[in-house]
Design a protein around this nucleic acid. Structure first.
Lengths: 361, 361
DNA sequence: AAAAATAACGCAATCGGTTGCGTAAAATTT
DNA sequence: AAATTTTACGCAACCGATTGCGTTATTTTT
């Protein structure tokens, strides 16, 4: 058996794994240097038209695919956006990500996702992982537990753009993409007042999270504006705003001596749970209790009566966040310390809050 | 101005961007070679305990973070799983991804997502992008349009494990993670028959997609088994199984001379749209029409009457798919041509199909 | 025609870990 | 004590693309 044969045998065993074509393979074959191949493939002007075409043609024919890992290493940054959200499987999370993915892929960026499950420990670990893979930017929505955001400093230090979405920290030199939660909370409450509610309860979330404290602030101010008393008994602070928690809290709420005739919930899930609980308990919605939620989740238009809610542009927020990252990546060292983008939102009035019997104006 | 000053000035301008610590920086500082640092950080046995501890301590103190891009390049594969689904924002998509992310992160893998929006063009482009970023494995659920899967060959050629989930191709040498759609369709239909339905319609999806053709096959066989006629007029082939399409098709269906008394829908969205349409039209659910859907989306337990459906373990399927990838990556060149994992599912019977008035047994 | 400018490409370092192989020193065996 | 093995580490190539700088050949300018 000759040496030739041995080599052949080994190669045969490895045949399954075809070697991927590199820029150097093309260089050798076409009698050009790797640099020229690289430049030709990117339409660099210093390479002649003829050569460029020849190289591109050969690359295409032979199915050359660039190794973006190598490019990333060399350029010390990857065309990748890291995403850090509490939960992917919630409508907000998946719509946000869908928006990010759509916009990112348009520009040739990949999207790496991670979820904190509302745990700060996970959030920190995920931030590390995203950093290690040298993402070109990061889009984050904070976990319920997050009070300190030091784990995002590493990105700023490297001039890696950070965009906080929806649940954002108070002070952090980065991009923010949010909605006006205060005004939304105000308008939602005002709407209930206009529908004749006198005693309006509020399902609140953790108050160190901006979205929940702002919604609460809007709620309180609307009551004050219309000279309604602010009764702390009617503000229910929930941990998760889950369906189960919503049911329990509603039950407690309606065991009060004087239960509310309206509920502004900080999310749709809890609002829907209230609707279901109250209907079962014999209350009429919206006649006895008018209800408005937040987010416009799919369930809100399915429940009966259909839930009034605040539209939350999750998909659009994802798209805008991505654009912010890409803009920043375009002009390195942009001198932006902080930029807040407030996206549009509006009430969606459905049956759960519309008392046809009491037209206000 | 001395040269020193010039350099200082330049460095000052760049100060914003702190240099990241590399293995070589540590090597220089600790008087070891880069190889030793690298090995020590991975607890390689050829490095003494003392040195290992010393190096790990220094690395930790100085906040060293490995550049996983560099590692990926050298090892020619990344600890990254690529995901390709039709739509992230649908419950199935987001739950699947959630499962993938959970399992992947546990093992230190990143997850890159992409959505085809049910377009074959996007699917091909996304497959390319995932290949270019040299993912360690790929998990895919086919688009509605996909009939040819050549764009997945590049992964097989490189021995990059491919897992198809839910919507899978007929013949492809890879892992498959599915449910038994035939049996599920059979049981769902059987359930309606047991509830006294005699004329059962079926909302079907594109028949070149395995999940829809299998469900249809189960439906047909159940009818035959119970000696009910198979009326092609009652099998509605939809394109998207969307809410709107569901409503339109339901309308057409109930304009027939003899409309059905039961509907087995291939998804929950269309089933819910039928419930809402029929209720509005004065039909009683389940007395006049018993309905069962597929997937167990959140809306199915919110709609009234609550929708009976087939449980779809999306999250679990994501977790298992990920495990398949990791197993394969563990033992290179595993001789697996094809492996099909069928996950458990079951009926969830709710009010929309439960005719208390007609207990069969 | 000489000088200058431009076009078209190659060289070689670089990004930051990883790893096969080599080697000196220490430990163990005979 | 000599021979052998083991321990602990370094050298240098490597992964594949990118890019500053340099070098011819060609074209343009004066």
């Amino acid at each position: 058996m000759s040496v030739e044969n041995v080599i052949f045998a080994i190669q045969f065993l490895r045949m399954k794994k075809k070697k991927t074509l590199t820029i150097h393979d093309l260089a050798r074959e076409l009698n050009y240097s790797a640099s020229t191949i690289s430049r030709a493939l990117k339409n660099h002007k210093s390479i002649s038209k003829k050569t460029t075409q020849l190289i591109q043609k050969a690359a295409k024919e032979q199915g050359y695919r660039p190794n973006s890992i190598a490019a990333s290493l060399r350029k010390n940054k990857s065309k990748t956006i890291g995403v850090l959200v509490p939960k992917i499987s919630r409508p907000f999370g998946s719509n946000l990500i869908s928006g990010i993915e759509t916009e990112a892929r348009k520009k040739g960026y990949n999207v790496i996702i991670s979820q904190s499950n509302d745990s700060i420990t996970n959030e920190i670990a995920n931030a590390k992982a995203l950093f290690d893979s040298r993402v070109g930017g990061i889009i984050a929505s904070l976990s319920m537990e997050t009070q300190n955001t030091d784990h995002f400093n590493q990105f700023v230090d490297q001039d890696i753009p950070v965009v906080f979405v929806d649940r954002v920290p108070k002070d952090f030199p980065s991009y923010h993409v949010i909605i006006d939660n205060y005004t939304a909370g105000y308008r939602a409450t005002e709407h209930l007042i206009e529908q004749g509610c006198k005693r309006i309860a509020h399902f609140a979330g953790s108050q160190h999270i901006n979205v929940y404290s702002e919604r609460r602030r809007g709620y309180v101010d609307a009551l004050k504006k219309y000279n309604l008393p602010v009764d702390e008994e009617l503000i229910i602070y929930m941990n998760s705003l889950s369906f189960e928690e919503g049911q329990q809290c509603t039950e407690a709420l309606y065991n009060l001596a004087s239960p509310p005739d309206g509920i502004f919930s900080s999310n749709d899930t809890a609002a829907v749970s209230a609707i279901i609980y109250l209907k079962k308990s014999g209350y009429k919605i919206p006649e006895d209790v008018a209800i408005i939620g937040f987010n416009d989740d799919p369930i809100s238009s399915i429940v009966e009566p259909a839930l009034s809610t605040v539209y939350h542009p999750a998909q659009k927020m994802g798209e805008l966040s991505t654009r912010r990252i890409l803009e920043h990546s375009g002009n390195e060292g942009a001198e932006i310390a902080k930029e807040i983008s407030v996206m549009d939102t509006h009430l969606i009035v459905r049956a759960s809050s519309l008392r046809k019997s009491t037209p206000i104006q």
